[in-house]
C-alpha cells in the first residue's frame, strides 16, 4: 500500500504548474477570486484559497492577467481576465502539456519505445 503522505507530496508536485495553466484558460471568461476557486474545483482542479489568491495577484503583476473592480454589486469584487500575454503563455503551456501527455501515453503502451 502506498504511503498516503508520499502520494500527497508527489501529487502536489505534479499539480503545481497546472494550476497556473488552468487559471489562464478559465479566466478567458473574467471572474473573481472565490468564484474562480469554485469553478476550478467543479472542473476537478483542486487548489487552496491561500494558494490561489496570491497566485492571481502574482500573475497580474507579471502581466498575464488584467483586473477590474466591479462596484455594481453591494460587495465590490476584483475580476481577473487573461491578458494577451496570458493567452500566449497558456497556448505554449498547453502544447507542452499535450506533448508530455502523448509521450507518456505512448510509453505506457510500449515501455521500451
Amino acid at each position: 500500500m502506498l504511503d498516503p503522505d508520499l502520494l500527497a507530496t508527489h501529487r502536489q508536485e505534479l499539480r503545481r504548474g497546472t494550476t497556473v495553466l488552468a487559471c489562464l484558460v478559465v479566466l478567458t471568461t473574467p471572474d473573481y477570486g472565490y468564484a474562480l476557486l469554485d469553478r476550478l474545483a467543479s472542473m476537478g482542479v483542486h487548489t487552496e484559497a491561500n494558494t490561489l489568491y496570491p497566485l492571481l495577484r502574482r500573475l497580474e503583476s507579471q502581466g498575464l492577467l488584467t483586473s477590474d473592480w466591479d462596484t455594481q454589486d453591494a460587495r465590490p469584487r476584483k475580476f481577473y481576465r487573461t491578458s494577451e500575454a496570458g493567452t500566449e503563455l497558456a497556448q505554449q503551456l498547453y502544447a507542452d502539456w499535450a506533448t508530455l501527455y502523448a509521450s507518456l501515453t505512448k510509453i505506457q503502451g510500449d515501455p521500451r519505445s
Partner: peptide, 17 residues
C-alpha cells in the same frame, strides 16, 4: 488599498457559500 476589499470579499463569499 487594493488587497483589503478583495480579501474581505473573498472571505465574505466563502462564508456565504
Amino acid at each position: 488599498d487594493d488587497l483589503e476589499p478583495e480579501l474581505r470579499a473573498s472571505i465574505a463569499d466563502a462564508t456565504d457559500a
